[in-house]
């Protein structure tokens, strides 16, 4: 198994005194939480043109003045609790990814791909009402996944492609990794051009070194060649070591198995 960089976990429970503010950088997203006497103010902005190497997570960085933030959300709490929670969550729609170049998978062959998905930050403030706010670290592009322009599903497009080797994915503390194994049981070659990940059905786990993973996915192209079975495993791959559940799936699924038409998974 390839190695992954270590990160300090940035999620969890925090506390603020009245009048105090905390700031974060999540890649190009700058976030600030301010606690007032009976109100929480959540500010955010996207820094344009930030170089790729600068896109890491940092807490309490040299913050911009509050007036520089372009978005402001306010939550009134009669007596605001000093505690709040910050959590990473996965996208609310499926994510479509593609290999850097289309891959042919001959019959009987298996392949394991690694996909990096964008994350949303969920800030839970006002302990009594559990008010939360979500914002994407990077607003992903929309994309359409379907057989025609009227039959399909609106998804997010993953900016980074699916990779054969984990080391080819640049380590990011604000992205989640998914291991996808594909087995072609059909009688002909399967062309992998696009792959739809059912992200709302996945949970987020953190490894001991602060890397975020989702459950592994296993896709089998069935012998009838027109359908594929997708199974959500119980956890991330064993090779990443011990993991801890950070945020559960947005949509709970009892069995964790989808059987879909082939083009509903591979485009």
């Amino acid at each position: 198994m390839q190695t992954q960089s270590a990160f300090t976990p940035w999620w969890g429970d925090f506390s603020l005194d009245i009048g105090d503010t905390m700031h974060w950088h999540f890649g190009a997203l700058e976030l600030s939480l301010q606690r007032l006497r009976s109100e929480w103010q959540v500010r955010s902005r996207t820094i344009a043109g930030l170089p790729e190497e600068g896109r890491q997570v940092s807490m309490n960085p040299e913050a911009s003045p509050l007036s520089h933030y372009s978005r402001l959300e306010r939550c009134i709490c009669h007596s605001s609790s000093r505690h709040f929670r910050l959590l990473p969550v996965l996208a609310d729609r499926a994510v479509v990814t593609r290999p850097s170049t289309p891959v042919h998978l001959p019959r009987g062959e298996k392949v394991t791909l690694y996909v990096s998905s964008p994350l949303w930050i969920r800030a839970v403030v006002c302990a009594t009402a559990e008010w939360s706010l979500e914002m994407p670290v990077i607003v992903p592009s929309d994309t359409w996944f379907g057989a025609s322009t009227y039959d399909g599903e609106l998804c997010y497009a993953a900016r980074t492609g699916a990779r054969l080797y984990l080391d080819d994915i640049a380590p990011r503390a604000h992205r989640a990794l998914t291991q996808v194994s594909i087995h072609n049981k059909g009688d002909d070659t399967l062309l992998l051009e696009r792959l739809k990940l059912p992200v709302p059905f996945l949970s987020l786990y953190a490894t001991e070194n602060g890397v975020l993973w989702t459950e592994s996915l296993s896709i089998v192209r069935e012998q009838d060649m027109s359908t594929a079975t997708l199974q959500i495993q119980r956890s991330p791959p064993d090779t990443v070591g011990a993991v801890m559940l950070i945020s559960p799936a947005r949509v709970h699924m009892e069995k964790g198995i989808f059987v879909r038409a082939l083009n509903a998974m591979f485009g």
Binding site: V96, V139, S141, D142, T143, W144, F145, A157, G267
Partner: peptide, 10 residues
């Protein structure tokens, strides 16, 4: 390409 509202596909 740089506009997130613009669909990647079609």
């Amino acid at each position: 390409d740089s506009n997130p509202l613009c669909l990647e596909e079609p």
